[in-house]
């Protein structure tokens, strides 16, 4: 199976509370760049689908990673290559030149060139929290989509049985490839992905780490630069941001000593019981 995994780098999501909004602009100064966690889950799932879990050194398919960003986002791509992806592409552009629709349209051209069987991506990136690129891409390609996948089972590399996490439960779809699948965090649980090569394999929970040797070897893996205008002629944005605001501050309340005091305050002060 050939899989395309779009990745984005984001400001360290575990320190997102340190983001400052000054003069209507977002400041992420001092925050580290990290790969979007959902995209890391997608990459992990892609690797699991293209290997035998008992012998992960032999690649049994191809995983191509692509990012949209300036030169320094090559770090994100090299990290993905070190984890096991086979080759990488970087579309040279900055975040303010992009919206979800433009990314999806550019990806469409890349998909037509590369002809993957599957586009596997995070259900949202944790900066814009927009949750739309996969769906828009699927529509532009005329492909089926399965969003918020918590489980994926390959059916002979021809179709996927996808367990989607939906409000109130799990919805299972069978999608015939090629298709677009976006993933939820549970996709990296030990038995969430069943590849055709080792369906019964139990993985370590979470995403894999790269060995030092792999980090060195990743420097030699192919990484191609692509111009955005080679992929799309219309680079106009469909959404423009005019300002950013800080969220309303929430003050810390009081600590109570006993449950009696708590119930009394909920009844008489907050009046919520």
């Amino acid at each position: 199976m050939k899989i395309l995994v779009p990745l984005k780098r984001v400001a360290d999501p575990d320190n997102a509370n340190k983001i400052k909004v000054t003069l209507s602009k977002i400041e992420t100064t001092g925050l580290e760049w990290k790969p979007n966690p959902f995209d890391e889950y997608a990459l992990e799932a892609a690797l699991r689908l293209t290997e035998n879990g008992a012998n992960t050194k032999a690649r049994l398919g191809e995983v191509i990673v692509v990012t949209f960003g300036p030169k320094e986002t090559e770090t994100t791509l090299r990290g993905a290559l070190a984890t096991g992806a086979d080759r990488a592409m970087r579309v040279d552009v900055t975040d303010d030149q992009l919206d979800g629709d433009l990314v999806a349209r550019a990806l469409k051209t890349l998909v037509e060139r590369e002809k993957p069987d599957l586009v596997l991506l995070g259900k949202q990136e944790v900066e814009g929290d927009a949750n739309q690129v996969g769906q828009i891409l699927a529509e532009h390609l005329g492909w089926p989509q399965a969003t918020a996948a918590g489980t994926i089972k390959s059916e002979g590399d021809k179709a996927l049985l996808v367990g989607r996490e939906v409000d109130g439960g799990a919805l299972t779809l069978k999608v015939t490839l090629p298709a677009v699948v976006s993933v939820d965090p549970r996709i990296v649980a030990p038995k969430s992905v069943q590849s055709v090569h080792s369906p019964a394999h139990t993985y370590a929970d979470g995403v894999r780490f790269s060995a030092l040797m792999a980090i060195m070897a990743a420097k030699k893996k192919p990484l191609a630069d692509v111009k955005l205008t080679d992929l799309v002629s219309d680079v106009a944005l469909k959404i423009t941001y005019t300002a950013f605001e800080a969220p309303p501050a929430r003050k810390a309340g009081v600590k109570v000593k006993t449950v009696e005091e708590l119930v009394q305050k909920l009844r008489t002060e907050a009046k919520v019981l």
Binding site: A11, V126, A236, L237, P247
Partner: peptide
């Protein structure tokens, strides 16, 4: 339009141009 971003640590004010 106003929408939460960065896990609710900022709000973006935006317009759809289409």
């Amino acid at each position: 339009i106003r929408r939460p971003m960065f896990a609710g640590n900022a709000y973006g004010v935006c317009e759809i141009t289409t």
